[in-house]
């Protein structure tokens, strides 16, 4: 569980204690530490989460996954939620 607030200009990654399972509607994400199950409800969001690993910051991950401009705020909100739940975390590199 992260105490830091989400900062879209920083690099992120899927937390090591989290497993992501693709599903037709998006993905199931399970955190082995908190034992919470999250549902990523669009495939686009799954692409964004995958893109985080190679992106210099969250904004870049959205562009790389080709999230339409109008949807950027919505997807950043979703990432903020995932960060506060500990599903994604700041990548220290």
């Amino acid at each position: 569980m992260s105490t830091e607030t989400f900062a879209p200009d920083r690099p992120y990654r899927l937390s090591p204690s989290v497993a992501l399972r693709p599903e037709p509607f998006g993905a199931l994400v399970y955190d082995f530490t908190t034992r919470k199950l999250s549902f990523l409800k669009t495939r686009l969001l799954v692409d964004v989460v995958h893109a985080l690993d190679d992106a210099p910051d969250a904004h870049a991950a959205l562009r790389s996954a080709e999230v339409p401009d109008d949807d950027h705020d919505r997807y950043l909100d979703a990432l903020a939620g995932l960060a506060s739940a500990g599903t994604i975390e700041v990548r220290g590199d």
């Binding site: 399972r21 599903e23 037709p24 509607f25 199931l28 399970y30 199950l37 549902f39 409800k41």
Partner: peptide
């Protein structure tokens, strides 16, 4: 579709 509806149709593998 609501998530519960996805679940009603079953997943390719169990959650647990």
């Amino acid at each position: 579709m609501k998530l519960v509806e996805h679940f009603q149709h079953g997943l390719d593998a169990p959650i647990c």
